[in-house]
Design a protein around this nucleic acid. Structure first.
Length: 422
RNA sequence: UGCCUGGUAGCUCAAUUGGCAGAGCGGCUGGCUGUUAACCAGCAUGUUCGAGGUUCGAGUCCUCGCCAGGCAGCCA
């Protein structure tokens, strides 16, 4: 707006709020770029137009024409002096006011809640995070390769999938593109997939969705160590891009950006064994071999100012395809990345098993149907190489970077346990 | 799925020991020539989540159910 001072312009948007002072109506207009104050005064308008201005309601859509001028009394320092206004679409009894609302009410009206300043800020940060992820991977020589959504079997088990009628068979919504990435990385060496994943878990927490978006890189000839360095670079790049391009949004979200500025490589690494030690000192003892619970993860996540890698989990805690450490076969060459400030896991990854015999053994141990993994085992039959990869959850990353209390705000239309409307 | 908390006007909430159903916001009507979640005056708004029970009397107590929020489990 500041570039258009003293010029005649036309604005299209929605009424965010109205304030009135007799012969002057102050219209706070919202459009795709932000808010601006428009001033409609009796003296500058026709009687019909001024009458229309007096009748405006929250979220009515408008087309305004007028001159841009500076005024210190306007929020933002500039305002539009309205010379003509046109009602595009009326809005009666808009349910969401500028006052307080409860979570349940807002979620029922998610389609309208998205118009709020806070939600639009989150959506913009989310878009920047997604772009930063893709730009970084592209810059590292990775090729975007889409993985299928409809799949014949579970990647990691069979209990958490959504079944879908597929002609005369049952298909399942993908919970991860990982196995398909392992195939495509043998073609293109460095690949990543980006898309939704579906999990039918009965999880009812602030960190779980049934429909989530993941970016999953996979690279041939990548080692465990290469994998961690790629993750550090990716996270630093995401944070940097958001700090650079979305400072206004972070401010609108009242996000403490100093905390984000501390995110610089290298990230601390602690092994599972060390983590158990730290947890014991913090009064959160866990027997060796047990996976971390939410309190354990939060404890470790709050202990550092940067994201922290949790490495070398016991084989029993992890997916069947994760490669055991040659020096300690009871643990895996895996790492989870925990975001700081209590946000917890945002990345899970590992080097993968490249031996045919070991992979067959693991599939049997996990009671998975060998027949469905025939193609996957082929990858170890024809030029198997060491390879590694990971998956980063978009919503958990958004929640952390935006400082959200609940993951439901990190995606436009969250899908949660038994909650699908709107 | 378990535990905890809650469900009262469109929204956010109040209602003392079981004793008249109430406020702010929003809506409507009017006022105001610089408002900043504007302000001022007035008006309207109820299946107190549902079913049953105790009681002279239930928003309040009891039982069951439904829904929501939080935590945990499950889960990358």
């Amino acid at each position: 707006m500041k570039d258009y001072l003293q010029q005649e312009v036309q604005l299209e948007g929605w009424v965010y709020n109205i304030r009135s002072s007799g012969s002057v109506q102050f219209i706070l207009l919202r459009d795709g770029t932000g808010l601006v104050q428009a001033v409609a005064s009796r003296q500058a308008l026709s009687p019909e137009s001024f009458a229309l201005a007096k009748r405006l309601t929250q979220e009515a859509s408008l087309r305004l024409r007028g001159r841009v001028r500076e005024d210190a009394r306007s929020p933002g320092g500039v305002e539009l002096e309205v010379s003509d206004l046109e009602l595009v679409g009326p809005s009666q009894d808009y349910p969401i006011t500028l006052k307080e609302h409860g979570t349940a009410f807002l979620m029922e009206h998610r389609h309208l809640w998205l118009r709020s300043l806070r939600q639009t800020a989150i959506l913009r940060v989310r878009a920047t995070i997604v772009k930063a992820m893709r730009d970084y991977m592209d810059g590292q020589g990775f090729t975007l390769v889409d993985a299928p959504i409809l799949t014949p079997a579970a990647v990691e088990g069979t209990t958490t999938l959504f079944p879908v009628e597929y002609f005369n068979e049952t298909a399942y919504l993908s919970q991860s593109g990982q196995l398909y990435n392992e195939a495509t990385c043998m073609a293109l060496e460095r690949v990543y997939c980006f898309g939704p994943a579906f999990r039918a878990e009965k999880s009812n927490t602030r960190r779980h969705l049934t429909e989530l978006w993941m970016m999953e890189p996979e690279a041939a000839f990548f080692t465990y160590e290469d994998n961690l360095r790629l993750q550090e670079g990716l996270i630093c790049s995401i944070v940097e891009q958001v700090l650079t391009h979305r400072s206004r949004e972070l401010e609108a979200l009242q996000r403490n950006s100093d905390a984000l500025r501390k995110v610089m490589a290298p990230f601390p690494r602690i092994t599972y064994d060390d983590a158990l030690q730290l947890l014991a000192e913090g009064g959160l003892e866990l027997p060796w071999g047990e996976d971390l619970g939410a309190p354990q993860e939060a404890f470790l996540s709050c202990r550092y100012e940067k994201p922290v890698f949790l490495t070398h989990f016991p084989v029993a805690c992890k997916a069947f395809y994760m490669k055991p450490d040659p020096l300690r076969p009871e643990v895996t060459l895996s790492a989870d990345l925990l975001a700081p400030e209590g946000y917890g896991e945002i990345i899970g990854g590992s080097e993968r098993i490249d031996s045919l015999e070991l992979l067959e053994e693991r599939i049997r141990q996990h009671n998975l149907p060998m027949e469905l993994y025939r193609w996957y085992l082929d990858l170890r039959r024809f030029g198997s190489v060491p390879h590694a990869g990971f998956g980063i959850g978009v919503e958990r990353t958004v929640a952390w970077i935006c400082g959200l209390e609940h993951i439901r705000e990190s995606i436009p239309f969250p899908r949660m346990l038994e909650k699908m409307y709107p």
